[in-house]
Amino acid sequence: MTAPINTAMDNLCAAQKSNIIPNQEYLLQGSVVDKSVEVLLHRLRGLCDNVDSGPETFSDHEMCFSIRRGSPQEQPLLLRVRRSMEPNFADMPWQLRYIGQPELGDKSRPTIVRSSIDIATSNTVVDFLTELGCKLDYEYITRGYIFRKGRMKIIVSKIIKVNQMNKVPESVPDYITPSYLVELSVLAPSGQDAIAEDMRVFAEQLRPLVQLEKIDYKRLVH
């Protein structure tokens, strides 16, 4: 089995050097109040692909873990585990995601850029992370709609609390805010900054319904 493993590693290294692995996420975020979301969904149906079939719906349970790599002053490594709660996708793999620190860059850059790597896993991934020493920081549920425009993905979703018994609410959802989160994102290999300008142009078409912008997370924390 050594030869196939070596070949796979060689192929992976070659792909990384050729910048064909999507390991960067370009991101804009905003929100829209509940009473205006139908107008936004109607606008997105007109702008995005697959107008006839309509947007995809989803319901995901997401758990956010962290682990310290060294001194307390260092930023912890952040990992996210996501699983679908849709009955039709019960057999789908779970998703483990690494997200790096946002790079706001200069003011002329249209979007946030951050490292992002997604891996399909089995449903034992939570046990695996716990054994590694990762700590569950928080978890939540997202339900909403996914639109696509070329390489761009637009998500309009509600964020729902997980109850005190660490159970997913089955009857009346406990929404965190009276608004929808709107995210415009693209996963692409390093060095494809031109996509950020396409995202800016698309975001302008959604004004004034929603203002998609770069979010300075450090400013929110402090």
Score class of each variant (00 low, 15 high):
3 A>I: 10
4 P>Q: 10
8 A>D: 03
9 M>E: 03
11 N>K: 10
12 L>I: 14
17 K>W: 00
18 S>K: 11
18 S>G: 05
20 I>M: 01
20 I>R: 01
22 P>V: 10
24 Q>V: 14
25 E>H: 03
32 V>M: 10
32 V>K: 10
37 V>P: 04
40 L>G: 05
40 L>C: 05
40 L>D: 06
41 L>I: 14
44 L>W: 07
49 D>C: 06
53 S>A: 14
53 S>R: 11
54 G>L: 06
54 G>H: 07
58 F>L: 04
59 S>A: 05
59 S>N: 09
60 D>N: 09
61 H>A: 00
62 E>H: 00
66 S>E: 13
67 I>N: 12
68 R>L: 13
69 R>E: 12
74 E>G: 03
80 R>H: 04
81 V>T: 03
90 A>H: 04
91 D>M: 01
97 R>H: 01
101 Q>H: 05
103 E>F: 04
103 E>I: 08
107 K>T: 15
109 R>G: 02
110 P>V: 07
113 V>I: 09
113 V>S: 09
113 V>E: 02
114 R>N: 03
116 S>H: 06
121 T>Q: 07
122 S>Y: 06
123 N>S: 13
126 V>Q: 08
129 L>D: 09
131 E>I: 03
136 L>S: 02
137 D>N: 13
148 R>F: 06
148 R>T: 15
150 G>A: 11
157 S>V: 01
159 I>P: 01
162 V>L: 02
166 N>P: 02
169 P>C: 04
170 E>G: 00
170 E>T: 01
171 S>G: 00
172 V>G: 00
176 I>S: 05
177 T>V: 12
180 Y>L: 08
181 L>D: 10
182 V>Q: 14
183 E>P: 04
188 A>I: 08
188 A>G: 00
191 G>L: 10
196 A>M: 15
199 M>E: 07
201 V>A: 12
201 V>T: 13
206 L>I: 09
218 K>D: 13
220 L>P: 07
